[in-house]
Design a protein around this nucleic acid. Structure first.
Length: 220
DNA sequence: TCATTAACTGTCG
DNA sequence: CGACAGTTAATGA
């Protein structure tokens, strides 16, 4: 998506963007709130989640710079089906639904990009269903860690995304305690490093091997 | 110093 | 495996 910033065809639309700066932990989309437009992450990181009954939260995915947020908001739905929160200081560009609609109708490359994005998203959520149904807690936690590694990478041996164990649990579909237990046993097996809140993956290949049976799509 | 938060452990259904 | 209770360590008002 970001690569389109250079496209001249898009310039008239880019001028209509609104820049929004979020502080850490700030929500910029609330579930059930009227749709106002579409967001792109320019800087920072965000988490996209759905809150179920009983305050249980399911983290759908994380977004990094260049990614789109709130895409399910336009079209027919009147309200956002998800909520999004900045994980750190995050800069967002937002476009109104009208602007996006016009842009999509006139710039094919943008439409194509969005289509690709949707298709990947659908793939992800389909394999996620399978994962949640078939994987053990240990595998789900490993899977979550590998996802974070793929998306954000590591620097000096630690994951570039700092999450609480609770957030990892909400993403993996378990509870905080289970995550802690898996984490500490992985640490004992020397597959993992842990420094307080920070986590480092020592042997990515070994972890991938454990969930290989479930990885139909490498990038899910 | 006290209070809060997060990481962690033990145990039970 | 999930839920609850309880301990410990770090942090900050």
């Amino acid at each position: 998506m970001h690569k389109n910033s250079s496209n001249e065809e898009l310039q008239p639309y880019l001028n209509k963007k609104t820049v929004l700066v979020c502080k850490k932990d700030q929500d910029f989309i609330l579930e059930g709130t009227p749709v106002v437009g579409l967001y792109f992450v320019y800087q920072g990181k965000a988490k996209i989640a759905k809150t179920g009954l009983m305050g249980k939260e399911q983290i759908i995915r994380f977004a990094k710079p260049g990614e789109i947020v709130g895409h399910r908001g336009f079209g027919y739905s009147q309200e956002y089906q998800i909520s999004a929160k900045a994980l750190e200081r995050t800069v967002l560009c937002s476009f109104s639904t009208e602007v996006i609609t016009k842009a999509l109708l006139t710039v094919p490359s943008l439409t194509y990009d969005l289509l690709t994005f949707y298709s990947e998203e659908l793939n992800r959520s389909e394999t996620k269903v399978k994962k949640f149904a078939q994987m053990t807690v240990r595998e789900k936690v490993i899977d979550a860690l590998l996802y974070i590694n793929r998306k954000f990478g590591q620097s000096k041996g630690l994951l570039n995304l700092q999450l609480t164990r609770k957030e990892i649990a909400d993403f993996a579909g378990t509870t905080e305690e289970q995550v802690i237990r898996v984490l500490s046993s992985l640490k004992k097996e020397k597959l993992l490093n842990t420094e307080g809140k920070k986590i480092g993956i020592e042997r990515v290949e070994l972890l991938s091997k454990e969930i290989a049976d479930h990885n139909y799509f490498i990038d899910s």
